[in-house]
């Protein structure tokens, strides 16, 4: 597998948060040490009204990255042209540092499951995706008998062949590693460092035998440990905390962000 192509990478943004309605006012009044924000693109693909007014305020104060959940790049269905046109219009307007989505499919036959469904790691799926672009690794609970590659081999091959960057979700690696019994360090070792543009950190919950990627809890200790390993391998990578449910006061997320900084700082100094 050729890993030598050097991609163009957008700037390093530091430590950020996912923008959530619950924090709108506090974040503008007391942003603390938040350096950038990631928005969920779909929340702002609307004709007008309050969401876009708020977005304009944040755009004036923070660098933004757009993160989508609906591109469904791995679906056998054609890409949704209407969605892409709206996404492109939003990107033209807010000029984000980058735009990302997930290496997954969210529906087929015109039906949307509103979930990040994993792909079989096959040459056929690989060829299908690289014609399209982007991407974040998803957490998964199922795997396919037909898979020929590991997940990290598949992700790395997609990034190389499509010449795109990777949003590496550290929590998702941990969740999938536990659910499928592979080593998360093997995963990190298999991803080309020059293509890692962003980290996601998030919480999960234990749902019986499997771990569920819920984004509704603080980042777990084991995920922090994996984050350290990721920083050792990839160096300065823009990092953000993702919380989508049981949204706590902003101060709790700022404390998690400080923890990420504190963990990474000595490793980055040593590497410098």
């Amino acid at each position: 597998m050729n890993m030598e192509t050097k991609p163009h990478r957008p700037p390093y943004l530091g430590y950020g948060l996912g923008l959530r309605v619950e924090h709108y006012e506090t974040l503008l009044e007391q942003p603390g040490n938040v350096e950038w924000l990631e928005i969920v693109s779909e929340n702002y693909l609307v004709p007008g009204g309050r969401p876009l007014v708020w977005l304009e305020r944040f755009r004036e104060r923070f660098p933004l990255a757009m993160h989508g959940v609906s591109m469904s790049i791995g679906s056998a269905d054609p890409l949704d042209e209407d969605y892409l046109a709206r996404l492109a219009a939003l990107a033209r307007h807010i000029e984000p540092a980058w735009v990302s989505d997930h290496l997954c499919w969210t529906g087929v036959q015109g039906i949307n499951l509103h979930d990040l469904m994993p792909l079989p790691y096959t040459e056929e799926a690989l060829a299908h995706v690289v014609e399209r672009i982007l991407l974040e690794n998803v957490s998964s609970y199922i795997s396919f008998a037909d898979s020929q590659l590991t997940e990290w081999q598949f992700l790395a091959a997609v990034a190389e062949r499509a010449d795109c960057l990777i949003l590496l979700d550290i929590n998702n690696i941990y969740v999938s590693a536990r659910n499928h019994g592979f080593s998360p360090l093997d995963y990190l070792d298999g991803i080309p460092a020059q293509r890692v543009q962003q980290f996601h950190l998030a919480g999960h919950e234990h749902g019986g035998a499997l771990i569920i990627d819920t984004h509704d809890a603080p980042v777990a200790h084991a995920v922090w440990d994996l984050y350290i390993e990721a920083v050792k391998r990839y160096g300065h990578v823009s990092t953000m905390i993702e919380r989508d449910d049981h949204i706590p006061p902003l101060a709790e997320l700022l404390a998690e962000l400080e923890h990420a900084r504190a963990l990474a700082a000595p490793l980055l100094q040593r590497a410098a």
């Binding site: 679906s75 056998a76 499919w105 087929v108 036959q109 499951l113 469904m117 079989p120 096959t122 037909d146």
Partner: peptide, 12 residues
């Protein structure tokens, strides 16, 4: 129909 398409339809 590709096998990827068939698989996704069955999973859906």
């Amino acid at each position: 129909m590709s096998s990827l398409q068939a698989l996704q339809q069955r999973l859906l």
